[in-house]
């Protein structure tokens, strides 16, 4: 019994890591990871929203009519995002400044909608909380790692402490948009290589194609068109 609950939690950490295995929520992954601390800030904000929205949706799962579930989920998520936005603004103004517009954009982060649709709307509150927590921490870990790599190469520091800045001149390109795409590409390559060693498949699809909730937001037909079997 206890094992099952541990499974709900660990699922999002490695096996179905939202960023590296499902490749969801790529926008914030690329945009805010110019420093490790921003990665943590973004990751924890998203985790908080994810846990709260999973809990609320799980509690309301028998109340929300099937036909309007997506708008209902989005409204619930938007409510929690507004709460987090105000909390961050009040207590962590520097993080609020660094995350800027990407903080309210958690609303359209597909990880959260995907977990609502795939998990919370079908499971009891406790597993939903654990699932949200696992997914959120998996997301935070990758964001922090990516932020750390970009900060180390791009500014020569780690969590704002100078590391190599004094003897190697920093490569600013890592802090600029191309660096984001490049580091993310390398991380996915590394995660694919590790997955392959463990007998798992590499990530093949990308973007919305991978989203488990794609059927409900109309992506299904889009993917069909894309792969050419019209």
């Amino acid at each position: 019994m206890a094992n099952k609950y541990v499974g709900y939690f660990t699922n999002g950490l490695v096996k179905e890591n939202p960023t590296l295995r499902l490749v969801l929520g790529t926008c914030p992954t690329l945009a805010v990871t110019t420093a490790a601390i921003n990665g943590i800030g973004m990751g924890l904000s998203a985790t908080l929203v994810l846990v709260c929205s999973n809990l609320a949706i799980s509690l309301l799962r028998n109340v929300i009519p099937d036909k309007v579930r997506i708008p209902a989920f989005i409204t619930i998520i938007a409510g929690f995002v507004s709460v987090v936005q105000m909390l961050v603004k009040a207590f962590l103004p520097s993080i609020d400044k660094a995350l800027g517009i990407y903080l309210p954009l958690i609303v359209v982060n597909c990880i959260i909608l995907a977990r609502a649709e795939m998990f919370a709307s079908k499971n009891k509150p406790l597993p939903s909380i654990l699932d949200g927590l696992g997914m959120g921490i998996g997301f935070t870990a990758v964001l922090t790692l990516m932020g750390a790599i970009r900060e180390l190469f791009g500014a020569g520091s780690l969590f704002s402490f100078p590391v190599t800045a004094n003897f190697i001149s920093p490569m600013i390109i890592f802090l600029l948009p191309p660096g984001g795409f490049f580091v993310f590409g390398m991380l996915v390559a590394a995660s694919n290589a590790i997955a392959k060693k463990n007998g798992k498949k590499a990530v093949e699809k990308m973007g919305c194609e991978n989203c488990p909730a794609k059927d409900s937001c109309g992506q299904e037909e889009c993917v069909k068109e894309e792969t050419g079997d019209e």
């Binding site: 490749v23 948009p177 191309p178 660096g179 984001g180 795409f181 490049f182 993310f184 590409g185 390398m186 996915v188 390559a189 694919n192 290589a193 392959k196 590499a202 990530v203 093949e204 990308m206």
Partner: peptide
């Protein structure tokens, strides 16, 4: 090891 998503992202880096 670069096939699929990784090379796409690196290509996006160059376009960017």
């Amino acid at each position: 090891f670069m096939k699929g998503l990784p090379i796409t992202l690196v290509a996006a880096a160059l376009v960017s």
